[in-house]
Structures are given as C-alpha cells and as structure tokens.
Amino acid sequence: MASLTEIRWHGRGGQGAKTASILLGKVAAKTGKHIQAFPEYGPERMGAPVLAYNRISEDDITVHCQVTDPGIVTVLDPTLLNVVDVTDGVPEDGTLVVNSEEDVATIKEQLEFDGDIWVLDAYGVANKEIGRPFPNTPMLGALMQATDLLPFENFVKQIKVELEKKFAHKPEMIDKNVAAIKRAYKEVAK
C-alpha cells in the first residue's frame, strides 16, 4: 500500500476538524481515490481536544484503526501546540500545517520538528472571508498548498459541490467558505 497517505487533524470541539476530514474524504473519493475519514473524541464538549483522520490511497485501504504514524498533521488550534504532542508518530520528512499567527521558524523551534512546516493565520482568514473564526475550511486550502494530495482547481470545484449540500439552507456560506479556501491557499507560508 505504497500510495497510502495518512493525515491526522488536531482541533477542539466546534472548530470543524471532523467536518474538514469528512469534506476532504468526500472530495478525494470523487477523484477516484479510496478514502477513510473519521473522528476520535471522548465526551463531546465544545472546546475539548479532538482528533480526526484521513487515509487517502490509489489502492484499497485495508487498515481500520486510528492513524498513529501520519505523514501529514493539520493543527486547527494553536493552543494545542502547548497541550498535545502534535508531532507524535510523524516521520522526520512529514508535513505539519499549523494555524498560527507565529512564523514558521518560531513554530519549528517550539515543536523541535525539522520536517516541512506550513503556517497560516486561519482565524484571520476565516474572520475576513466568512465573518466567523472557523479555521477548518481555511486549513483545507492551506493543506492543498502544502501537499500534492489533489489538484487545487479540481479540489475547489468538488469542495463547492460538497459545501452546496452542507449549506443548502445558508447559500451565502458557500462562496464565503470557497473564498476562505482560496485565500488560505495563497497566504499559507512555508
């Protein structure tokens, strides 16, 4: 299963880590990839740390457990960097995509991680484009820039279809979330 990509999402309840994982999985599936997208959390409390996972592969996925050695980690809440070891299980050549106002060098030093780190002020992007500080869709845009998981234009086209389903009752949120994804794709720094 050499083509398997595993992603771990770190967030807090209410930030959309589970939703981002599921949206990514649905879009990847539409491109013909095999996927898994699932959360892991204890008691559902707003603000409590949560994990979500993705597996994306060209081949059938035969493992059915949490992701312990992700090649990619996405951190939706910068306060988790002081609470959780977000680099646990990540190989030296892994990729971290972090929501933070700090620069890459500061995050690299804080985490003592020499792999690939990308940083985006996802709260800032969300506030500007969506009008609320939900980091999940901006972090999807940052993730697309930081990795070669899916071609960006195709990703945007397919994510819009998924957002149309999710926000059928709030159509104005579709364009706002797409704008946040596009802005994040351009603004994420390495």
Rank of each mutant, 00 (worst) to 15 (best):
68 T>G: 10
149 L>Y: 07
136 N>F: 02
143 L>A: 07
6 E>M: 06
48 A>C: 11
68 T>F: 15
29 A>F: 15
42 G>E: 11
12 R>I: 15
154 N>A: 15
91 P>W: 12
149 L>M: 13
57 S>V: 04
21 S>N: 05
173 M>Q: 06
70 P>C: 03
124 G>E: 07
97 V>K: 00
35 I>R: 01
6 E>H: 01
47 G>L: 09
134 F>W: 10
172 E>C: 06
1 M>K: 11
82 N>P: 03
107 I>C: 07
81 L>W: 03
151 P>E: 15
21 S>L: 06
36 Q>K: 10
95 T>C: 15
175 D>V: 08
177 N>Q: 09
93 D>E: 09
183 R>E: 13
141 G>N: 12
122 A>V: 04
138 P>W: 02
135 P>T: 02
190 K>Q: 14
77 D>A: 06
105 A>P: 05
94 G>C: 08
72 I>V: 15
93 D>F: 05
142 A>W: 03
46 M>N: 07
178 V>S: 05
153 E>S: 08
60 D>M: 10
13 G>M: 11
175 D>P: 03
116 D>G: 02
134 F>E: 09
58 E>M: 11
75 V>H: 00
111 L>V: 11
36 Q>H: 07
38 F>D: 06
107 I>Y: 09
11 G>C: 03
67 V>H: 01
133 P>V: 00
31 T>K: 14
25 G>S: 09
93 D>C: 02
113 F>A: 02
174 I>D: 03
8 R>C: 14
162 E>T: 05
172 E>K: 13
190 K>R: 14
182 K>I: 14
49 P>W: 03
159 I>E: 12
88 D>Q: 13
74 T>P: 07
159 I>G: 04
39 P>W: 06
22 I>T: 12
39 P>T: 01
187 E>G: 06
190 K>L: 04
59 D>Y: 12
65 C>Q: 08
171 P>I: 02
188 V>Y: 01
102 E>C: 10
134 F>D: 10
81 L>D: 09
165 K>S: 12
5 T>E: 07
59 D>W: 05
149 L>Q: 11
53 Y>P: 00
78 P>I: 04
16 G>M: 04
11 G>H: 03
65 C>V: 09
122 A>M: 00
22 I>S: 11
141 G>P: 06
162 E>F: 00
144 M>A: 14
186 K>M: 11
127 N>Q: 15
102 E>W: 14
126 A>M: 03
7 I>V: 15
140 L>F: 10
14 G>F: 10
165 K>W: 06
46 M>A: 15
9 W>V: 04
52 A>P: 09
76 L>P: 06
67 V>Q: 01
40 E>K: 08
31 T>Y: 12
178 V>E: 08
80 L>Q: 03
148 D>I: 01
27 V>M: 01
103 D>E: 14
115 G>T: 11
127 N>C: 12
64 H>S: 11
125 V>G: 00
62 T>C: 08
187 E>S: 05
59 D>F: 12
10 H>P: 04
110 Q>S: 15
190 K>S: 09
37 A>Q: 06
79 T>C: 10
154 N>H: 12
